[in-house]
Design a binder for these strands. Structure first.
Length: 577
RNA sequence: GGGCGCGUAGCCUAGUCUGGAUAGGGCACCGGGUUCCUAACCCGGCGGUCGAGGGUUCAAAUCCCUCCGCGCCCGCCA
């Protein structure tokens, strides 16, 4: 098609580069075709009026094997694909690639996606979960696009927050200050997750330290001790214990990590010292009067009043950003593509990190995927202390409750275990979809009714459509391949539309991975589910006769394509709902 | 104050990188659809100054400038 256009344009006196033509060609199609080509850009050179140019080119471009016909519409050329061939090719590809349909070839570069990395101080609220869902989906998208991915969770076991947890739990509850004890007593829950249990005194402790300097001094001493490499042993154990509880919740959402990287390890292995040595001799290094070292980073786009980035305190200890430099250097050793998923409040930290990498002569940079906060309707970010946080475990419990009701209302034939299994799948699917559907740079206002919606543009809608396909195949006793089909029999308009949506998946995966736009996958899942429902209502499958085997093949292809898409989104694919 | 992000129907949202036809969905609302493969569905209707203004262009939601509104950040915290 590109060749034909190139030749055709040259013949009418408007030659153009293939790249220009390719950029103009819209493969998503226009109102009346599978591909559209606007001609405005070539009108002047041709000396013809736009419609005349379109008509002339349409007449000259002969339909090829892939293209049924070319029509002129105003200043546009519209191409209609050969449906039989498109159907043939798409279905064959889906069946041949199966679980890898939509996936790209191994690009040969290794990527690291660091996401979540929430400090282990207590349970996840759903603002933090946005990071995990975006990060996990991105990792899936990159893998599908052909980039081997290692996911990493960076665990902060060194700062004040970790020290506060250690400080309070290193003494028996009976010796806690009354203010903190009050926040805990009466909340003992047998079998409670460790993040909820160990995290409960955290907000009160944080508040207490603000008004009790002597206690704050003890915490500061702990930080010092940790910096010196002598962290109390229970500090890491506590962090691990809380982290374990947090991760249990993420596992329900299908989120697991390949590696956990502990911040304190960079101190222990000497890499922080090496980074500090390089920073002290960096081009813009300056030493303050108290012995602290900083980088004068005005040229790196930092805020006007604070261009000085302190990298080493007056007492010789390192700072978070310094350790982060060490961490990133370690990533660059192993990975060609390094992606960090960060909340917008870390944006400046990212700029600072880039500046420091530059200072020590490191040419590589992480890619940042920045997401906006999830806020509450009353305004403002979710705050643990302000009581406005929506906890992930609470949200999941509500979602399961609601899903269970839905299942029980429509199915009486299921045993309780099956009901629970479906409710869990629907609930987690709804939550994941609800978070991932919005572009990460958009702010999200959390509303219960939206988050728990099972209709319309939702996870359960996509799951339900998938189950429909499963169910039809089950009734057809055609749960396994082969799926013989005759493309010539698949000529219902809704069938053609459905094939076209299925054919789009590889492009969607590439787009999502290249732009880090995971929400495109959510949009695609909905498009495919919706079009399958239209097909389902308009076209009989089991009741058809001559078309039956071919239509069963279409349904099998949908099961595969939609199933692959749900996998990309980390959403469970139930076989019954 | 400065930097970054966001602003698309009553509400939520896609499209913005790389300008192209009548701005694509969802919720809500109104009207239809189930003796038939699962109605968590489908069909139809209603609803748009794409924050405002200017500019570039044959063509602007998309690019440039100014402004307005909202959010975040501007620590020898993480």
């Amino acid at each position: 098609m590109l060749d034909a256009l190139t030749t055709g344009l040259a013949e009418v006196g408007a030659p153009a580069d293939r790249s220009v033509i390719a950029a103009q060609l819209n493969l998503e199609g226009g109102p009346q075709g599978d591909a559209a080509f606007p001609l405005h850009r070539f009108v002047a050179a041709s000396g013809l009026s736009p419609p005349a140019l379109a008509a002339r080119l349409a007449g000259e471009l002969r339909a090829g094997p892939e293209v049924d016909h070319v029509t002129a519409d105003g200043a546009y050329l519209n191409f209609r694909a050969n449906s039989v061939r498109l159907t043939e090719r798409t279905l064959r590809l889906v069946f041949a690639r199966a679980g890898r349909y939509g996936h790209g070839d191994d690009a040969g570069i290794a990527a690291c996606v660091e996401h979540t990395s929430a400090n282990p101080t207590g349970p996840f609220h759903i603002g933090r979960v946005r990071n995990a869902i975006i990060g996990d989906t991105l990792a899936r998208a990159l893998r599908a696009a052909g980039t081997p991915v290692t996911t990493q969770y960076y665990v902060d076991d060194m700062g004040r927050q970790a020290a506060m947890v250690t400080w309070i739990w290193s003494k028996p509850v009976s010796e806690w200050p009354p203010e903190i004890r009050a926040a805990v007593e009466g909340f003992e829950v047998p079998g409670e997750k460790t993040d909820a249990h160990r995290g409960r005194p955290y907000p009160a402790t944080s508040a207490y330290l603000k008004t009790h300097p002597e206690a704050a001094a003890e915490v500061a001493a702990l930080v010092q001790q940790t910096e010196a490499g002598n962290a109390p042993p229970q500090q890491r154990e506590l962090a691990q214990s809380i982290l374990d509880g947090m991760l249990e919740s993420l596992v329900r959402l299908g989120i697991r990590f390949d590696e956990f990287v502990w911040e304190s390890d960079f101190l222990k292995d000497g890499s922080v010292d090496r980074v500090l040595a390089r920073l002290r001799s960096a081009p813009h290094a300056v030493q303050e009067s108290n012995g602290a070292w900083a980088i004068e980073a005005a040229s790196y786009g930092l805020p006007k009043e604070s261009t000085r980035v302190v990298v080493q305190r007056g007492d010789g200890t390192s700072l978070y950003v310094t350790r982060d430099v060490a961490y990133h250097l370690s990533k660059f050793v192993r990975f060609q593509r390094v992606v960090d998923v960060l909340g917008q409040d870390h944006r400046l930290h990212a700029v600072t990190l880039d500046a420091l990498l530059s200072e020590i002569g490191e040419p590589r940079r992480p890619e940042y995927v920045i997401y906006q906060d999830i806020t509450v309707p009353e305004g403002g970010r979710m705050s643990t202390r302000g009581g406005s946080a929506v906890w992930l475990d609470h949200l999941l419990a509500e979602a399961v409750e609601r899903a269970r009701k839905e299942v029980l209302a429509r199915r009486e034939d299921l045993d309780p275990a099956e009901v629970e299994r479906i409710a869990e799948a629907v609930a987690t699917g709804a939550v994941r979809y609800h978070i991932v559907r919005v572009a990460s740079e958009k702010p999200v206002v959390f509303r219960w009714d939206d988050a728990l919606s099972f209709e319309g543009r939702s996870g359960p809608f996509c799951q339900y459509s998938f189950v429909r396909a499963v169910s039809v195949l089950r009734k057809a006793e055609a749960e396994n391949p082969p799926y013989p089909f005759d493309s010539a029999r698949l000529n219902h308009p809704e069938e053609a539309n459905l094939i076209r949506v299925m054919a789009r998946l590889p492009r969607v995966v590439q787009y999502a991975a290249r732009r880090n736009h995971v929400h495109a996958l959510a949009g695609y899942a909905h498009d495919l589910a919706e079009q399958f429902n239209r097909f389902y209502h308009a076209v009989p499958v089991l009741r058809s006769v001559e078309e039956r085997p071919s239509r069963i093949a279409v349904v099998a292809a949908v099961r595969q394509t939609l199933g692959n898409t749900l996998d990309l989104l980390g959403i469970a694919r139930p076989d019954s709902m």
